[in-house]
Design a protein around this nucleic acid. Structure first.
Lengths: 195, 195
DNA sequence: GTCTATACCCAGATAGAC
DNA sequence: GTCTATCTGGGTATAGAC
């Protein structure tokens, strides 16, 4: 089999197993079984189990930060940027379901892998984009100044990044639909407005 | 040492280790070290590592559901109930930091432990309380009917249960303060209201 | 109730034939 | 590049002395 393809296969199967059982609970032998080779063969592609994890996270962070930069480049209104960042979270979570789940589950373990792989700085770009959108909105009066912007950020971040755990895009509700609904709730609130 | 006290010690140290490293990555020997005994001694108190986890979760779920029933008993307005349920999440997370973190990290593993321990039904009480408060609010017109109540529930649940990861109660901001702030954001939104 | 010692298993990783 | 076989370490759990 084409080496590149096999490598891809190892990454994909690993991502799936890591996501569903956790990294520690997933064995090299299980990964090999899924790929259809013997465990020794995996070591021709990656020097260790940890190296597989690092590679998965690198691909994910690279793509995520790239897409994030596109969003901040087209400087829209604060509300538009929040909706775009919410959609970014939903769609990258879908495209990198394995990596995202690992990221959620194994917080501090992943932090270490990131620092090792020199990706910590890149990983922080998304947070800065959120905080900038929020700060701009407060500055221009679009957002209230009697709400702690830090609290607002943490709440919407958790809500958005956890969302793929209960939402799968369907024909009835796409990721874009959900991003819009989330933005409506956080920006306008659940209580009816007088109009 | 008093057996009951030692048992308590084992539970507390285990909770701390499980929460910070994950269950699979925490070894019986580590727990024993923390308690200050040899690993064999632990087996006089619990038949297995899993039994420790189950016991931790049982204590937590029992207390949580008890406090939840108190809230639903005093039937307040929907907004008050949401604030009370938010505070419930924040304060039980503080009182059971270990158990809560385990609960967050090891979702599907914990589900199995719950079913085994016959606690699944109890664990669902909190969800029902949230959904009832939301449905009542929509029915009486306090909440908008053009927002999917299911989406609203999932968002506020994730936001509230993740909050202890970034918030520790201080003299400047207590859990009650944060619960109020969270409720304000979700109910009234981040955009200023005309008044 | 705790310690010492150890059985037993399964993990990650390696070596060499093909 | 893959398979077979195996090394080595560390995990849970147990047994028996004290």
């Amino acid at each position: 089999m084409d080496p590149h393809e096999r490598r891809r296969q190892i990454l994909d199967r690993s991502a799936h197993l890591f996501a569903s059982k956790g990294i520690a609970a997933t064995t090299i032998r299980e990964i090999a079984d899924e790929v259809g080779v013997y465990s020794g063969a995996l070591y021709h592609y990656f020097p260790s189990k940890e190296a597989i994890v690092t590679e998965l996270i690198r691909e994910y962070i690279d793509d995520l930060s790239g897409r994030c930069r596109e969003i901040t480049a087209q400087s829209q209104t604060p509300v538009d940027r929040i909706e775009a960042l919410a959609l970014l979270a939903l769609s990258t979570s879908e495209d990198y379901r394995g990596a995202t789940t690992i990221w959620q589950r194994e917080g501090e373990y992943m932090r270490d892998r990131l620092v090792e792989a020199d990706l910590a700085e890149t990983a922080d770009e998304v947070e800065r984009a959120w905080r900038a959108a929020i700060a701009d909105g407060v500055a221009e009066g679009t957002f209230r100044d009697d709400i702690d912007p830090d609290v607002f950020y943490q709440l919407i971040r958790d809500a958005v990044w956890q969302a793929p755990r209960w939402h799968r895009p369907t024909s009835e509700r796409s990721n874009a639909d959900l991003a819009r609904e989330i933005t409506r709730i956080f920006v306008d609130g659940f209580r009816p407005r007088a109009e």
